[in-house]
Design a protein around this nucleic acid. Structure first.
Lengths: 136, 136
DNA sequence: TTATAATCCTACCAATTCAATAGACTTTAA
DNA sequence: TTAAAGTCTATTGAATTGGTAGGATTATAA
């Protein structure tokens, strides 16, 4: 199960992807449209900006906008920022690899191979879907 | 990311699947072999027994054993007991369906379709893998 | 210049979940 | 009768989740 943060983040990005290019949208607008608690969304968008997905303009009339074209923003990269690893187990994560405390040897770990299968199939979907696929 | 509980549970089941049919194995043995905290494993196996995967025998010489053949125990069914929903979002879960609080209409939810794709691909793997596939 | 509307930032909080531990119990075999 | 096993319920500490609070800063427009 993904967190609300990730779900809200994806919905907000999709909302921005629907706008005309470079169009500024305020947090309040997105929050209302997508039924997201505004203050929570504020934090999420801040994170997405710091991660390089969003640009912003402060002050009256300000708001957020996508820095790249929707078709150039893969779900996988967004997911990693919002939720973290795509893999179900740290020892099969490509971007967040960590050794499992209990496994002496990954090669002999029984669940290892299954987790790689799941990672690969999920990854395939997330790498092949961009924000643009959501807009349609 | 799956919980330790799920990972430990899968490893323990695999360990039992490796035994000769009906062979009793104590919690202590599994815990030592798989590097799992014994008391934690105790609770996990208890749950798996109550869910109908394991049989047990109390007293000296007792232990746990699989109630079904390893090839008849799908990862999907184990996962649902240990971890819960396979889907990433409650609104696309087949066995644990719940409406998302923020979505007024699932048909217009932008992330819905993606979540179904991921669910289906993960499900396919989990339905097609049994404990027997781990033993090899 | 001033009111207002927006983002920015840090901190905080309550509730839940996670990972484990504790301890008393029952059952069984030797 | 004793040691070895599972059973059961409760507790606990740490982390995570899903927010909220409140101000600081910045830009616009009247």
């Amino acid at each position: 199960m993904i967190s609300k943060k990730t779900k809200y983040g994806l919905k907000a990005l999709t909302f921005l992807a629907k706008q005309e290019k470079g169009q500024l949208v305020s947090i309040a607008t997105i929050a209302k449209s997508e039924n997201i608690p505004q203050k929570f969304l504020e934090n999420i968008l801040l994170g997405l900006r710091k991660a390089g997905f969003l640009g912003s303009k402060k002050g009256k009339g300000g708001g957020y906008y996508l820095l790249k074209k929707p078709e150039d923003i893969k779900v996988a990269s967004v997911y990693r920022i919002l939720e973290g690893p795509i893999a179900m187990v740290p020892c099969v994560s490509l971007n967040f690899y960590e050794k499992c405390g209990d496994c002496l040897d990954e090669k002999t770990c029984s669940v290892h191979k299954l987790m790689i299968q799941i990672r690969d199939s999920t990854l395939a979907i997330m790498e092949n879907n961009t924000l643009d696929d959501f807009v349609i």
